[in-house]
């Protein structure tokens, strides 16, 4: 078994239930919603993502790659006099370096986001609950997982029902 899932009708009910669960001492849980809810991450996970640091590094390496490429090609490998300009024509080199900075940053942001989220992921236990197909349109779910030290099938199920859940389901692993 993976955990116990509670279904809610509204954003507010899910946020309230998550808060209650944290207060009750549950730690290993996850909320699912059809829209981004800024507050949920702060309530449940409390940590902001480190994605922007990766993106900064990606961008800087793009910039370095751009300048190195152009410098090497135009100054070292095949120097050519173009209208008396210095071989290292930095104002011109700014442009490709700039584009590569953005390209590398953007790819880092997108790939990094998916990688940190563990996507693509072909299988996940929550999809075993039939009602969960509503999680992408208008229902809200909170899953307390079995790995939670405080997890107890009966008590956790009761706790979730008490939070005003419209339904509580067992999630097969």
């Amino acid at each position: 078994m993976y955990g116990v899932m509670a279904e809610f009708d509204s954003v507010q009910a899910l946020v309230d239930a998550s808060k209650q669960a944290v207060t009750a001492g549950y730690t290993v849980m996850e909320a699912y919603s059809p829209i981004p809810i800024e507050e949920l991450n702060d309530i449940i996970h409390k940590k902001r993502t480190t994605l922007s640091r990766f993106v900064l590094m990606g961008g800087l390496s793009g910039m370095a790659a751009g300048f190195t490429l152009q410098y090497w090609a135009s100054v070292i490998e095949y120097p050519m006099n173009i209208g008396g300009r210095p071989y290292a024509t930095w104002p011109a080199f700014v442009i490709p370096s700039y584009e590569l900075t953005i390209l590398f940053s953007a790819l880092t942001a997108a790939i990094g986001m998916f990688a940190l989220n563990g996507l693509p992921q072909p299988y996940h236990p929550v999809f075993n609950v039939e009602r969960f197909s509503m999680a992408s349109s208008d229902k809200f779910f909170l899953v307390i997982e079995t790995t939670d030290p405080r997890f107890d099938h009966g008590a956790t199920t009761r706790f979730l029902s008490d939070q005003g859940a419209k339904g509580v389901y067992d999630v097969a692993a």
């Binding site: 800024e38 991450n41 997108a110 986001m113 969960f132």
Partner: peptide, 16 residues
């Protein structure tokens, strides 16, 4: 890609 709309997913998604 197996998106399931978890709070953690959404948070990273919004930042990205």
């Amino acid at each position: 890609l197996g998106w399931r709309g978890s709070a953690r997913h959404w948070h990273r998604y919004e930042v990205a």
